[in-house]
Write a protein that binds this DNA or RNA. Sequence first.
DNA 1: GCCAACGTTGGC
DNA 2: GCCAACGTTGGC
Length: 149
Amino acid sequence: MPCWLMKSEPDEFSIRNLEELGYSRWDGVRNYQARNFLRAMAEGDLFFFYHSSCATPGIAGIGRITRAAYPDPTAIDPNSAYFDMKAKAEKNPWSAVDVGFVERFDTVLTLPQLKSHPALSQLPLVQKGSRLSVMPVGEAEWHVILAMR
DNA sequence: GCCAACGTTGGC
DNA sequence: GCCAACGTTGGC
C-alpha cells in the first residue's frame, strides 16, 4: 500500500483538529506536483500529518485516505481563500481527497530528528529548499519513521 | 520578520 | 522557448 506525507499549517488545520472532527476534506493544494500525488492516492492509503510554518515543524500523527481524488470545490468558490479565477466547475484543475483520523503522536517528531536519520535522506521533506506539500513515503522510510515516534 | 529556494507568469 | 521578475513556502 502506498504511503504519503502531507503538510498543513497547524494554525489552519492541525492533527488535533482532525482528531476532534474524525474526518475532513484535504483541499487547497495549488501545486501541480503535489496535486498529481493526490491523484495517485487510493482509499485506505495512510499518510503522515506534518505541521509546517509553526513553532515545532514535524510529523504530528497519521491519517488515512477515505476518498480518492475529486475536483477541489474550494478552487471554484469565490469566498474561499483557495479560490482560483482560472478554475471552472466544468474544468477544475485542482483536486482534493477526504481523510480520516488515525493517530496523534504523543510528541511531534521534529524536523531536526527526521533530518538526523540517514535512512530518510531521500525524503523530499528533508531536502534543502524542498517545498513539496504532498509527497510519497517509501515503505522502508515509513517504518523507520514509525519506529522514531 | 528575514530570506533562501522554489514555482509561476508574462514579455520578448 | 528563454529568462527576469514576482509571489509563495517554510525554516529559522
